[in-house]
Design a binder for these strands. Structure first.
Lengths: 222, 222
DNA sequence: TTCGTCATGTAATGGGTTACATGATTAC
DNA sequence: GTAATCATGTAACCCATTACATGACGAA
């Protein structure tokens, strides 16, 4: 029930794969590190977490940090809840990662997929990138057609808006071209020779930078 | 009730201000001419039209085209329904046009506002453009901060995604700068002496070939 | 006469937000 | 001791989509 769907679920699993976290922090990561893709509210995050627990993909544990332990020892206290991916959850996430459907190239899905390319096998990355590209090319085609058809009767602003949008899409296509090229030659374009894990199974998880608990400037700042 | 809200309502009123139309055509315009901003489905359009009628901003009339007249003369036929803006509707739209709140600079609202700049007074245009710009600059600021804070622990793909997003936002800011400048000097950039936008132009975009009236590619092409 | 497109609609559902309610911890 | 921020949740609502249902019109 209530398949708190697609992208949020996916992102949550993906983030928890890297390390266990509690809800609040999860949301911050959703909005900043992985940022750019839409800011989710607690109103969607917590129910989503509940449902993932219910499906056996996550476990809820009381936080183990000193203050949580203290808190737990006293009566009736609500400690942080740390969510951890279960084995089944991990498996499920791999499955999601390897599945490429036509939704994968839609704007929001694509960003989410891309954000976890680090854990994605090369051929899936290729499919997603190419799918996205042809999606955008279609869109471009339609925009050109509609523009050609109605250029005369549109005012300057509308025209300018369309021009700018098309330019943005064209830019993204060029970006994808570069990425696809990099994938093909096997090189990541901005450090010399970073070894990429090719398999679905990530060998080296990005090093856990445990330290500073400070971390200001989180919120959506709506 | 059911305030089929904001952007759809706004766009519908704006399009009908230019000329009366029936629902089907309205949707096409929403998705193409005004395109780019999200494709609405009939499931939202028709109820929205109903509600606008209920509020006295639109009237429903049977279509006046020959085939509609013929249709109407026979019994029990459903003819096209042409929607026309009422005086109150026009007034209401003007009001919406002149109102600038903080929602006006959000992505979707902004596109809709911009699309009707042709009917918007210069000072409102200015406010909207400048509001949008500072909105984006905030966003940029946050992105930079979050990037600086966490550069080390992010993998290449996440980094690349953020870099690309930031670049897009920066581009939009430059675009807004140009537009604001044009507004200030009172010139529409691209007639007269066409000083050409400075931005990265595609080397030779394929020039649109001729006028085949075949008109494919209307629908969302999901 | 059938197929594609024009044309209008509704019910169920989805996926999310806002606003609210609650309380702990930290910094000053 | 009080304000800010950390932290967790829920209920009511919102806006839109999907899938469905209906039917006309033109062309092959």
């Amino acid at each position: 029930m209530s398949r708190r769907s697609g992208i949020l679920e996916f992102a949550v699993l993906g983030l928890l794969r890297e390390s266990p976290m509690h809800g609040y922090e999860l949301r911050k990561r959703l909005n900043t590190s992985l940022g750019v893709f839409r800011a989710f509210s607690y109103g969607s995050l917590y129910p989503c977490l509940k449902s993932l627990v219910a499906q056996g993909w996550l476990t809820e544990e009381p936080g183990s940090a000193p203050e949580d332990v203290r808190a737990a020892s006293r009566a009736g206290r609500r400690a942080k809840i740390v969510y951890r991916l279960t084995a089944e959850g991990k498996e499920h996430f791999e499955e999601l990662l390897s599945h490429t459907g036509p939704e994968s190239w839609e704007d929001e899905h694509f960003a989410a997929r891309f954000a976890f390319f680090g854990q994605t096998s090369r051929d899936v990355r290729m499919r997603v990138l190419e799918g996205r590209r042809s999606r955008l090319e279609e869109r471009l085609e339609r925009m050109r057609a509609s523009l050609a058809r109605s250029r005369e009767r549109l005012d300057d602003y509308t025209l300018e808006l369309q021009r700018h949008s098309m330019e943005s899409v064209e830019r993204e296509v060029r970006w994808l071209n570069e990425l696809i090229e990099s994938e093909r030659t096997g090189r990541s374009r901005r450090d010399g020779s970073a070894p990429q894990h090719t398999s679905g199974d990530t060998g080296g998880r990005p090093r856990e930078r445990g330290g500073s608990r400070t971390d200001p400037s989180d919120d959506t700042a709506k």
